[in-house]
């Protein structure tokens, strides 16, 4: 039990609790806030794993942009809580059963099959340096250049798509 393990366990608890809170909150705004908390803990995990760049991106993009967008939409639509509906009553119990089965199976697989002594993370000090960041950037822009460009095009397409979706409404009003 070293200090890092303690940090990990505490954060894992917070992370799982906030995930559960997200799923079970009545109010969608609280759900969103729980999810933000979860994302922040995941970002801290990234830091522990020696990936500061991804950690910061996670906070900027997920917490800073995506979740704010969610909050906007929830607030604008007034969709904090929906009236209950009675369709598919058999689904909920089945869902619980299946997901718990999934969790048990996954954990069983992870802790029996994948366990080996070499699979231990040891946050490398070198990973946290400026050089490693530069190395990663070089890889991103050489080996992964094509995916990078495709991603940028995808973002552009998404942007255009959203504008088109919103524009239709305005044209109708005119």
């Amino acid at each position: 039990m070293n200090s890092e393990m303690i940090v990990f366990l505490v954060l894992a608890l917070v992370s799982i609790a906030s995930a559960l809170g997200m799923v079970f909150s009545r109010n969608a705004v609280y759900s969103a806030l729980f999810l933000v908390l979860n994302f922040v803990t995941v970002a801290i995990f990234y830091l522990l794993l020696g990936a500061p760049f991804i950690a910061m991106s996670q906070i900027t993009v997920y917490a800073g942009a995506i979740m704010v967008l969610f909050l906007f939409v929830i607030m604008l639509l007034g969709a904090e809580s929906l009236p209950p509906s009675a369709t598919l009553p058999w689904q909920k119990p089945l869902a619980y059963v299946l997901t718990s089965a999934l969790a048990v199976e996954a954990l069983y697989l992870v802790f029996t099959r994948a366990r080996s002594s070499e699979l231990v993370t040891s946050p490398d000090a070198s990973l946290n340096s400026m050089e490693s960041l530069r190395e990663m950037a070089l890889q991103l822009f050489s080996q992964y250049l094509l995916p990078f460009e495709i991603t940028s095009i995808l973002l552009l397409v998404a942007m255009v798509g959203v504008i088109v979706l919103v524009r239709q409404e305005k044209a109708g009003q005119k």
Binding site: Q91, E105, A106
Partner: peptide
């Protein structure tokens, strides 16, 4: 979604 999950559970099983 449920059927997808069912598939996942079965494959893991």
């Amino acid at each position: 979604a449920l059927s997808v999950l069912l598939g996942v559970v079965l494959i893991l099983g």
